[in-house]
Structure formats: C-alpha cells, structure tokens
Design a binder for these strands. Sequence first.
DNA 1: TATCCGCCGGATACAACGTACACATCGACG
DNA 2: CGTCGATGTGTACGTTGTATCCGGCGGATA
Lengths: 245, 245
Amino acid sequence: MPAQQAPAGDAKPPVSLWERLARPTPAPRTTLTPQRIAEAAVAIADAEGLDAVTMRRLAGELGVAPMAAYRYVSGKDELIELMVDSVYGRLPLDTPAEGWRATMRTLAVQLRALHLAHPWTVRAATPFSLSPHQLAVPERAFAALAGQGLDADTTMAVYRTVTGYVHGSVTAEITLETLRRERGWSDGDQTRAALAPRMTWLMNTGRYPNYQRYLHEATRKDDPDWQFETGLDAVLDGIATRFTL
Amino acid sequence: MPAQQAPAGDAKPPVSLWERLARPTPAPRTTLTPQRIAEAAVAIADAEGLDAVTMRRLAGELGVAPMAAYRYVSGKDELIELMVDSVYGRLPLDTPAEGWRATMRTLAVQLRALHLAHPWTVRAATPFSLSPHQLAVPERAFAALAGQGLDADTTMAVYRTVTGYVHGSVTAEITLETLRRERGWSDGDQTRAALAPRMTWLMNTGRYPNYQRYLHEATRKDDPDWQFETGLDAVLDGIATRFTL
DNA sequence: TATCCGCCGGATACAACGTACACATCGACG
DNA sequence: CGTCGATGTGTACGTTGTATCCGGCGGATA
C-alpha cells in the first residue's frame, strides 16, 4: 500500500497559501511556522540581498534541515510571496483620512519607504499579487477615492497611475543604490568616478550631446527624495486636472 | 599590511563591453559575433522567457560549445546587458520633432510597445544602464525638452517621471499577461475564473469592501491600452501644469 | 492505559545551472 | 616554414531547487 499522498491526480485547486495561513494554527508547539520562515527569509534578504535567500541558507538560519520549509511553502516562489506579504504587513495603513490627494500621497511615500527599507521587494513583488497585505494597499486607495464621483475604471486608472509611477521610479532608484552599495561606492561623486571610464567613452562618441549637457548642468543629481516627490506631485497634479478632482 | 578592503581591490577597470564592441571586428570570418550571440539569446527569450536563456541552451542554438560565448561576454550579466541593448536598438527614435509633449508621449508608447514585444525586458533592463542604445532614450527626451526653459534637474525630473510611470505600469501589465500566458488562460474571463477561488476567499474575509466593489462595477478591466494611455495623459497633464510647459 | 495515525522534520539524491581552467586548432604574418 | 595570438572545445566543480523516502513524536481513540 504505497501511501501515495502526493498532490493526487487532480490538478491543484486546493486551498491557497493565504487560506492555509488563516486557519488556526494546529498546535502552538511546532518549531516551524510560516511567520518564522518569513521573518528569517526577510532578515537574510534585508542583510545580503535576495540572491542570498537560499533554501539551504534559510534552513540553516532556522536551525532545521534544508527541506523542512517545504512543509509550509510549495516552493521558492511561494516563499517569496510569503516574504513580500510579510513586509507589506508592516505598512502603517491606518493613518486618518485627509482627502484623496493627501492619502494617495502618503501612500506613495510609504510604499517608497517600504521598498527602500527592503530593496529586494522591487524585484520580488509582482503587482496585484493576491496576498492579503498587498491587497490592503488598493483597498486603502479605493477607500480614499470613493465618493469623488469617479467610476470604477477611472478609480483603478488613478490607482494604477500612482503605483505605476512609484514602482517604476523606486525601481530605478534602488537599482542605482544597490549597484553603488555592492560595489562599495560611498557617495555620488565616488559613483561617478567609478563610472567615469564607461561614461566618458560613451560621451566621446558624440551621440549624446543633450545628455552630456545635463551631466554638466545638473546640481541635484544625488537628491532622490527631491526627484521622487517632484515627480509624484506632478503625477498628482495631472490626476487632479484630468479627472477634475 | 592587511589592506584587504574588499570592494577596493579595483579588480575590473578594463574596457567596457560597449567599448570592446565598437572596435573594428578583428576578422570577419569568425563564426561567433556579439550580434549573433545577442540575436540568438533574444530569440530564445522572446519565445520561451528569460529563464530559458541558459548558457548551454544559447550555445546549442548557436551550434557551439557551452563555453564559447564567454569569449565575448564576461558572464551572464553581460549577456543580458547585450540582449537589452540589442532590442533597444530596434526603437524607432528618429520620428520628427513635434513639441515636447507629443515627443514624450510617443516615446512612452514606443517604450511600452518594446516591452510588450519582449516581455523579459522589464525584468532584465536596469534603468540607466549605460549602454549605447539605452542611452539614446534619455538623449531623445532631453533633446525634445531642451529650450523649454527648464533647468537640467527639472528636465531630468520630467524624464524620470514619465519613464518611471511607463516602467512601473508596463511591469504590472506584463506580469499579469505573462502569468496568464504561462497558465494558458486565453482571455480575461478565463483568468478571473481561474483566480476565483483565491479571490473569493480573500473577499469573504470582508477586509476589502472597496476593492470588491470595484470588481463588480468595473467594465474596462481588460483594456490595457486604455489604462496605460489614460494614466500617461494624466502624467503629461501633471508635468505641463506643474512646470508650466 | 495501550494503540494507531497523521503531521513534522531529517536524510539522501539528482538534474540543471554558471563558470573556471587547460587544451586544441587555425589563420596571419615574420 | 615556424611562431603566435585569437577562437572554440572538453572537462570538471560547486551551488541551486526540489523529489522522495523515513523515522518518530503527540494526541485522539479504544
């Protein structure tokens, strides 16, 4: 009798990760829990980047065998879903309501802060992943936008516009910051110095005169806060004018 | 003298990938060239996704030994840089000038089209990677924005805002589209049907009333063109009003 | 109290990956 | 004709995700 308790013949429509999570924990005596797994993995990713999160490394950090975590996640993809949901759970979404614009603005700023605190999230987070804490973000936005006379599609367009800007903008910021960190460049000047050979060669091709002029004239190249918020306010301006909010 | 200084070492200052590429090809009779490598890799990624691009697979496609490509790229990272630069080279950036707004709009639309045609680029492309064809994008934008009375920093802010929106927005779009394709769901209804179990469970928690209302009221959920362009026009509106262009 | 069963974590194993390294080969130039 | 540098080959190693089988503990049941 080969106790074949494999995933069985039928596909895999069974309970989702989040549904399993929500069930009361069968016993409080187990050494491993999804929360512990998520926190350990997040700690590794925060400290050494997403690539350092290895099933073996994670197991080592938890003091268990390499395959142990597979009791709780079906594979590495689900582990990352778990990690992302875990950090999204730390978002302080309970700020008081103050009108749609202020709410959307703080939401954007909070999302950026979250990504900066956990740079691996921009690579790992799939927008619209159906995880509880990630869903709380559009929920918050929709709540703030309700009652403004917008239909559902436009509400979604507003939400997507703002989060699209945030995600793209922060991705660029973090890509550069990560590159800088892993190469050991401390400030912007040192970064430019390290990039100088490539850059000067490219500029000497003479094909980028406008870009070159920017390089000479810009003075706030190293102020990501200013860059982010300037763009954000422009985006919010645009939403206000186009949808007459 | 410990002088270990991990990042210091100054290990790889040699000529960059692009500098090497620009040198005259030493002999026109070699079977392998960076162009051929890039095209083969792009073809694989277009057909089967970025994960299918393997050094061995690429070598097989080119009819050479697994390690052969390493004569031209220092590793897989450089291979991907090469791939991205290759597809950026297909951008038709020579459209006539028609004012900053029209230029920025078509640039955004073209970038979206490029990402949709090669979905792996949103994962692979690091913004501000210093490759010739990628640099041509900000060059084009700066050219269109020059003479509008903006200082260099604001010009960059405008560029970053638009490309940030494009990148983030298209990333979301492609993530969903890719998911749908690899699961074999044909249209939006089938996607929603497949996601229904997860979705209904989440909705039944009662924690997302506004999101749930959106699900019921929305009618253009499956029109990504409309979503993208609506957001884009809002962003451009915002830039125009905030910087009085 | 004795028994059984289902959940848990451990151990082993495998295929695929990126890539280091030494070797063979071939055209060009002295 | 001999030498040399550039090009592609062959082999091998360490690491990764994960399939599979096992032993054992604990609580419900008899």
